[in-house]
Simulated scan of single mutants.
Amino acid sequence: MLVLLPPSETKAPGGDGAPLDLAALSTPELTPVRTELAEALVKLAGDVPAARTALGLSPAQDAEIERNAVLFDSPTMPALERYTGVLYDALDVRSLTRAQRARADRRLAVGSALFGLVRGADAIPAYRLSAGAALPGRPTLRAVWRPALGPVLAAVDDLVVDLRSGSYAALAPAPGAVTVDVLSERPDGTRAVVSHFNKAHKGRVARLLATTTGEPGDVVRLRALLRRAGLHVEHDGGTKLTLVVPADAVTR
């Protein structure tokens, strides 16, 4: 099973790993594109006004540009510890047992605008590049990544659960992947799409899938696994699951 997660704009600072070694990251066939983008990001950091425009940053966020400037010299840490925010708080990898963490590192991967795809244990520095960024004089990140990342995802033989947000899923599709929508249900039975806290619920799903000893091979077995864990999951056919949460649980 492969669970695809979105990255986060916020990153944990620091780290105690050696500087970035692109050749050491998993999925080495992505190295040429990673190298091209990383070098472009470092070069862009030398022109702060241009970097602000390209990355959608304000002057108050110039520290993000400084991070990019030292991309190849900064300390690294495992990807699952580098990314922060609502989803990763719910995933909470630091609380996992050794065996659970090994499964998480094996099953979880993060879709990244800079690296394309990183596994949980891949050592990466802090950086700033979102899927919607427009690097000067270069094609869109979607145009850059789709020819390289698309075949990688298409070649995955295991069940793929795609929890990426729309902009990252657009970088390259994962054919046949199971997707999960999150809806809140009010006491009167009406439902609404969960926006911000969608990330928290997907983080909990990711934690469950990362730690379970089960290995579902299709969407029906995946639904059964989630239901056994106490989640209200609906499946109307196809590869989409709907996670329904009580309205009063949306903010928890």
Rank of each mutant, 00 (worst) to 15 (best):
R119S: 02
V182M: 12
S184M: 12
R138K: 15
G120M: 04
D158M: 00
F197P: 05
T84P: 06
A206W: 02
A113T: 09
V86D: 02
A99D: 15
Y168P: 01
V42Q: 04
E9A: 09
A51G: 05
L22D: 12
G189C: 13
A143K: 13
V178R: 00
T211K: 04
A131L: 06
R227W: 01
I65K: 03
K11R: 13
Y127C: 03
V193D: 14
L153H: 07
A174C: 07
T10K: 07
E29L: 01
P7S: 10
E36Y: 12
D188M: 09
R107V: 08
K202F: 00
V180L: 15
E39G: 02
D248M: 07
A170Y: 01
S26P: 10
G166P: 09
R221G: 03
S95P: 09
Y127D: 00
G217P: 02
G176Q: 08
V118T: 11
G150H: 00
T213H: 06
M77W: 06
L37T: 08
T84N: 02
A40Q: 09
Y88G: 12
L153P: 01
Y83W: 12
A109F: 02
A210L: 11
R34Q: 11
D47L: 12
A12N: 08
R67H: 14
H196I: 14
E29P: 00
P32E: 04
K11Q: 09
R207D: 02
A224C: 08
P187Q: 13
V220F: 02
A90H: 08
V144W: 02
L71H: 08
L87C: 06
P19H: 08
D47Q: 09
H232M: 07
D21R: 15
G214E: 14
R128T: 06
R138Y: 04
R98P: 10
G111P: 00
E29W: 04
T190W: 11
P13T: 10
L141M: 10
R191G: 10
V48H: 04
R94H: 08
K199D: 10
A126K: 10
L153T: 05
L141P: 09
P216K: 10
L44A: 03
Q61R: 05
K43Q: 12
H232Y: 06
L44Q: 05
R142Q: 15
D16N: 06
S130N: 03
T31V: 15
A38I: 08
D162F: 09
V160A: 09
P175E: 04
S184K: 13
T179A: 01
V194A: 13
V161E: 04
G132R: 12
L171S: 11
A109P: 03
D157H: 06
A50N: 06
P49T: 04
A121I: 06
G176D: 06
R223Q: 15
V245Y: 09
L25E: 08
R94A: 15
S167F: 12
E81F: 15
V48W: 05
P59W: 14
A126E: 15
A126V: 10
V180D: 00
V70T: 15
V219E: 01
R103G: 07
L20C: 05
H201D: 03
E66D: 14
L20V: 07
A60V: 11
L159R: 03
G120V: 05
L135N: 02
